[in-house]
Design a protein around this nucleic acid. Structure first.
Lengths: 149, 149
DNA sequence: CCAGTTTACTTGAACTCTCAAGTTCTACGA
DNA sequence: TCGTAGAACTTGAGAGTTCAAGTAAACTGG
């Protein structure tokens, strides 16, 4: 009863897997090598830096950075050890805690950003035409659309 | 001097990251839940099953399954413990070892495949038009093309 | 108003992955 | 033919991720 993938679908699927894994690995390696952090940590710092007062509630931050709460919790623990992020209690709701980017964290992020953007261009945008970039945006939006729509 | 991403690029980039991470995680979760293995292990079993005599040299297998040698080595060790894969020495070159899919491994793979294909359709193909699938294939090929071309 | 549920977050253990180093073995050139 | 380079694979330690369970605080309906 299974609808197997036909040959074209098979090829597309494997290319997609290989391409997305390759990009993830390239970025991870570049950031780890040049800035001593995995890409997931970089994403966290970026979201914080874009937020008003450079701080967010843990659960918002998790959603914004495509992370599970557990992953975020562990990650922020490490980032705190390095002095890049600080946790602050929320007076209004004591279940909540804020994660705030420290000045040192911001400096580290600023130093990491150019190399990271370079890697993104090199692994993705430099390889695609303007049309393809637009197509990719549409495709990714479709993938992310909720099931019931 | 850095060429930052403009707003469109930024959006596309984040959508791509979110989409590819989402797919990876969906597949990993589905396989882990229903078949007790991560997607990387599934990929290894698939490549072996497609190979003549259902066996491959470790280094070929690593390349075929988008894995580093070290990762593959660890993975095959686990798969061997479960009795799904067997290592065999190569008489011609004693540095080489073959990884062979056992009958039990093949059975496990056969049992896992329908659910996996279902997840692939659900997370990718069911969400895209035929045109988009074709566009995606072209885009992924471009991403994978070697730098010097 | 208070028992039960839900929300927010943390924790620990098991597992996978990465990186660097180590072990064998083959190949090659002088 | 010997020594050095390179290839194939393994290993161990360190780090990140996941899952399930746990804590604590805030709701909510009878």
């Amino acid at each position: 009863m299974t609808r197997w993938l036909d040959e074209d679908e098979q090829r597309t699927w494997r290319a997609f897997l290989a391409a997305s894994q390759r990009i993830q690995e390239d970025l991870d390696r570049q950031l780890q090598r040049d800035s001593g952090m995995p890409h997931a940590y970089y994403a966290i710092l970026v979201r914080l830096s874009e937020s008003p007062e450079r701080r967010m509630r843990m659960s918002e931050l998790a959603a914004a950075a495509n992370s599970s709460q557990s992953r975020l919790s562990h990650a922020v623990a490490r980032l705190e050890e390095r002095g890049w992020v600080r946790r602050e209690p929320c007076p209004a709701d004591r279940r909540v805690s804020w994660a705030a980017l420290t000045d040192e964290g911001f400096a580290v992020l600023a130093a990491a950003a150019p190399g990271h953007v370079g890697a993104v261009r090199q692994s993705l945008f430099d390889r695609l035409s303007a049309d393809q970039v637009e197509q990719l945006a549409t495709i990714c939006a479709a993938i992310l659309r909720e099931p019931g729509s």
